[in-house]
Design a protein around this nucleic acid. Structure first.
Length: 974
RNA sequence: GCCUUGGUGGCGGAACUGGUAGACGCGCUGGAUUCAAAAUCCAGUUCCUUCGGGAGUGAGGGUUCGAUUCCCUCCCAAGGUACCA
């Protein structure tokens, strides 16, 4: 008998698959198609850790399963290779990001290869590859050349808009456009200069330039994400951050808000993910209401009025979901960033308002949303006029109102909204009650169902629903508002002040953006000396000396040649991380095509992704933007489906088990074993620590110091020699031990290099093999849930593979071959049934248990039948493909097992004639009784009641009730 | 704060539409084999127990003949919250 030599077997089959292109997918096949996709990784410098392959293994199992089921399977892989870490590294070391990226990709590829995935590597894509980003630039141009026609409810080419403008101006155009788009007639349009026309069109294009508020860090010369800001300063370096407006490219995703919402009903995605997207889009129905701002002069005192100012031009627009409560308004609150704040604030309030605005600029939006306990705000001194009562309403500013949501202003109705209520209470503002029969002395009343409006003029006595209808009519009548559907979704900012991203195919003529023609793409990233922003605060591309567009030669030329006649400056921003990932799934269908993003044949054959597996953290980023671009591509007729992935599964995170050792705070060279620490309050131990350290009773305290998990064994014992050699500060570490050992304590955290808890797959593959790792990753628990990694447990699945190997080498392969017994077949078919159900339900963990049970049973049955072992090899093959291939071959088959048809389950082998009934008393199982399955309910009851153990349980009591569920259970109440 | 997910032995987890709680594996204990170790095999392993039995799925309550599963309240942990990927 030969041993299970996994290293040899795995290397052999990986080579075989590569040489025979076993998993190369054809774009032309009679078989039904199946497109299985894993989210492609960002190739980080740290390499893959055991958490990364989890989803890939799941997708791989499903792909292989579908291949056994007769499908033509597309299962590609690539790299999302633009990104910040490579750029940071470049800033620190001066190494070109392309070089480090290439290196990281090669490392990833090695690691992926050794796991035995069935990827079609001939279709690999890299988002940072110019042949790839040519098409990212192309999509950008398509978006630039499109507008959203609300009448046809789809995106159209900008030319259709121009022809409308030429004929009738924009009065009848219903489009998603900027708020400040002016009205004009055909005559106006035709009289506009070319630049004016371009300016107008920019307000309609699906990608456009706009001033957007960002977190600007002057010291770093860059914009920061909310999570890069801690307590108002940059996480890196602790520099001040301010909110500031910047001109940036934006994507008009808001045009698609409703369709993105509606589309969720058509796709089989996890409900939590759909909920995230639904909340993100945030549809709410209500009304937009405008309030006139009373003239500041008149506000103060009538005598001071200099001019009878008709200066009512300042208006505050609010969006409210409760316009029915408009007579309950007792103040208004503006976001501190609101553009009117500076204008309307009275001189008396100026200092206070400015201080508040400044303080708010330092707080992050998330902070402001999360903090509901602190109520803060400042009165501006100005008043607005109630559109119906004409009463003056004080205007406040408060940081609970966010500039980015709605209009950045709210009409505060304290009796109907808890936040307004708390604010009013805090600042002693009136809380008029406009609800019939409701006590608002303690809290606001927000229940729409039972609302009856009072003290509200023409709304009195109406329900919420009726009042809503009425008020909207009245608002429209007086020209102070209208019914409106509002979305929380904002247009997506598409510019990044970074180097390592796609350059925009854009140059500027007279300040207006111009697109470079497709035939001249890709516009390649220029070389720069430094990857930092320029001294004048321009993005890193501002460092490039060759970054101008020659419209005669159609090529990039030196900046010195810019003459604004034929040579123009190029855009300095780059595209964000999500640009390259928003259509990559379609590019895989035809990745080497240089003439088109994909051929019509390819897209028509593959259509869309059947199964997409990836992390839930992409819920509102990648997955929303991709859906948006897909819908756009659909509108333009490039793709046949307006949703790109039919089914999506989120794999859970594999968490790491970090290790910590206690250190005496006053003696940084002294470390304490966990079991010593645990009893450090006992007098004896305390004295021991004191004697060792010389630290007095009052001062003694401990820090937790992170330790690399590589220095700790499975019994939590620290290798002190490795620890001392780890970092200079630990060189002379002393330990207070227990039984000669230093123990660490553990904590479950996200797996990350900075937490020193990363486990790499390489060493595991070396020691146990890829098949063991694949099985173990699945065996850990349900795919969707997060679960902690513990390498020690892998011995279980590894010895299962050894048992599997033994079953074949002791059986069929040893020449002793037998007809299958009824028992053999029962075990086999039970396994087929369960495994098939499990794969269909993505319950891969329970399949592994099922295999274990199957092999245990067949081993004890001493099964040697090829008729059983052959189908079993196919069942195992999606999970542990290398060993399955080897066994398949040794059973006498030629070629790969990959295309072998999946075994067919047959019920007839599982038919039973009796059942061991659990007999329970008041719901608790007390004993078991074997009874025929065809026994009638009454006979079962009689048989159970006659049983001596029943009498024992009842102890003379009469049963009150006997529940018999045939084939399931008997329950006796009494 | 808000949205989402989860909480079952020492650990990872299983339990189909409410029907035997703890499958399978790790770890641990004992034994076999061995000069010894590794490997392998066998038995045991939720807790308490007066060895009859009793309790038990984050806590408390409810519905039910019967609840890990359904409902209500609460506690704890993780993920997301618009420029990390």
């Amino acid at each position: 008998m030969m041993n299970y030599d996994f290293q040899k077997i795995e290397a052999k089959w990986q080579k075989y698959w590569a040489e025979n292109e076993t998993f190369k997918a054809s774009n032309d096949s009679d078989k039904p198609k199946f497109y299985a996709l894993s989210m492609f990784p960002y190739p980080s410098g740290a390499g893959l850790h055991v958490g990364h392959p989890l989803g890939y293994i799941a997708t791989d199992i499903y792909s292989r399963y579908k291949r056994h089921k007769g499908f033509n399977v597309l299962h590609p892989m690539g790299y999302d290779s633009f990104g910040l870490p490579a750029e940071q590294y470049a800033i620190q070391t001066g190494q070109h990001p392309a070089i480090t990226t290439e290196k990281n990709i090669n490392r990833y590829r090695e690691q992926l290869d050794q796991l035995g995935f069935s990827f079609d590597w001939s279709r690999e894509v890299r988002t940072s590859n110019p042949q790839y980003y040519k098409w990212t630039q192309w999509i950008f141009i398509q978006l630039f050349n499109a507008w959203y026609n609300k009448k046809s409810d789809k995106a159209e080419n900008i030319s259709s808009l121009i022809s409308i403008f030429e004929k009738e101006g924009n009065a009848n155009v219903e489009a998603t456009c900027d708020d400040d788009t002016p009205s004009f007639s055909a005559a106006d349009w035709n009289a506009f200069s070319e630049k004016e026309k371009q300016e107008i069109l920019l307000k309609y294009r699906l990608t456009y330039l706009a001033d957007t508020e960002v977190n600007w860090c002057p010291a770093l010369g860059t914009v920061l994400a909310n999570d890069e800001i801690v307590n108002g300063v940059s996480e890196r370096g602790g520099h001040p951050v301010v909110r500031k407006k910047m001109t940036q490219w934006s994507m008009r995703i808001t045009a698609y808000a409703q369709r993105l919402l509606d589309g969720l009903d058509k796709i089989d995605w996890p409900q939590p993910l759909k909920d995230s997207q639904t909340n993100w889009i945030g549809r709410s129905v209500g009304a937009s209401v405008t309030f006139n701002v009373l003239d500041a002069e008149r506000n103060r005192s009538d005598e001071d009025v200099i001019s009878t100012s008709l200066n009512h031009l300042d208006q505050i627009e609010v969006f409210t979901t409760r316009p029915d409560t408009i007579f309950g308004v007792s103040f208004m609150t503006l976001a501190p960033e609101h553009e009117l704040v500076a204008k309307i604030t009275t001189p008396e309030q100026k200092a206070e308002v400015e201080a508040y605005v400044e303080a708010t600029a330092k707080r992050s939006e998330r902070d402001r949303m999360a903090d509901v306990k602190t109520i803060s705000g400042v009165f501006t001194g100005a008043y607005a006029e109630h559109p119906f009562t004409k009463e003056p309403i004080p205007i406040w500013i408060g940081d609970y109102v966010l500039a980015s949501y709605g209009t950045g202003a709210v009409m505060a109705v304290p009796c109907g909204d808890q936040r307004d209520y708390d604010f009013a209470k805090h600042y002693n503002i009136a809380i008029p009650n406009i609800f019939e029969g409701v006590d608002i002395s303690q809290e606001a009343f927000a229940d729409k169902e039972t609302t009856v409006i009072a003290n509200s003029d023409f709304l009195n006595g109406l329900s919420y629903k009726d009042a809503m209808k009425k008020i909207i009519v009245e608002l429209e009548k007086i020209g102070h508002g209208e019914g409106k559907v509002n979305y929380r979704l904002r247009d997506a900012v598409f510019s990044r002040q970074r180097y390592w991203g796609e350059p925009f195919p854009v140059y500027y003529v007279d300040g207006m953006p111009q697109m470079i023609d497709l035939e001249h793409l890709p516009l390649q990233l220029p070389e720069v000396e430094k990857y930092l922003p320029t001294e004048t605060g321009e993005p890193p591309l501002g460092n490039a000396t060759e970054w101008a567009w020659d419209t005669d030669k159609n090529e990039v030329v030196s900046n010195d040649l810019i003459d604004h006649k034929t040579v123009f400056p190029l855009e300095l921003n780059t595209m964000p991380g999500w640009a390259g990932s928003s259509q990559y799934f379609n590019r895989y269908m035809d990745p080497r095509n240089d003439d088109a993003i994909f051929s019509p044949e390819a897209i028509n054959y593959w259509q869309d992704v059947d199964l997409y597996i990836g992390g839930s953290e992409h819920a509102t980023g990648h997955l929303l933007y991709s859906r948006f671009w897909q819908k756009f591509m659909f509108d333009m007729g490039y793709v046949p489906k307006d949703e790109f992935a039919q089914k999506l599964i989120n794999q859970g995170m594999i968490t790491g088990t970090s290790a910590f050792v206690y250190r005496v705070a006053q003696r940084p060279d002294v470390f304490v074993s966990k079991d010593v620490f645990d009893k450090h309050e006992d007098l004896e131990t305390f004295k021991r620590i004191q004697a060792f350290t010389g630290v007095s009773v009052a001062n003694l305290s401990f820090d937790a110091i992170r330790v690399d998990v590589d220095f700790v064994n499975s019994s939590d014992e620290l290798d002190v020699i490795k620890f001392r050699n780890w970092q200079p500060e630990f060189k002379h570490a002393k330990f207070i031990e227990e039984d000669g050992l230093v123990k660490v304590f553990r904590e479950i955290e996200k797996m990350s290099k900075s937490k020193y808890n990363v486990v790499n797959p390489d060493a595991i593959c070396e020691e146990y093999g890829a098949d063991s790792l694949r099985l173990y990753e699945m065996f850990l628990g349900p795919l969707e849930q997060s679960k902690p990694w513990n390498t020690a447990g892998i011995t279980g699945v590894h010895s299962f593979l050894k048992k599997l190997w033994k079953l074949y080498t002791n059986g069929s392969l040893s020449g002793v071959e037998a007809e299958p017994t009824a028992e053999n077949l029962k075990t086999l078919h039970k396994t087929i049934k369960k495994v098939e159900e499990d794969i269909e339900n993505f319950s891969f963990n329970t399949s592994v248990s099922t295999f274990m049970i199957c092999v245990n049973e067949l081993t004890s049955q001493k099964c040697t039948s090829k008729a059983v072992l052959e189908p079993l090899a196919i069942l195992v093959s999606p999970y542990a493909p290398h060993i399955a291939e080897e066994l398949w071959e040794r059973l006498g088959n030629i070629g790969s097992i990959a295309e072998a048809p999946f075994p067919k389950f047959e019920e007839k082998f599982l038919v039973e004639s009796s059942k061991e009934y659990p007999i329970s008393f008041n719901g608790k199982m007390r004993f078991k009784l074997e009874l025929p399955l065809d026994m009638s309910k009454d006979d079962i009851e009689a048989a159970v009641l006659a049983h001596e153990k029943t009498k024992e349980q009842l102890q003379g009591r009469d049963p009150k009730k006997v529940i018999v569920v045939p084939g399931k259970i008997v329950n006796i109440v009494g």
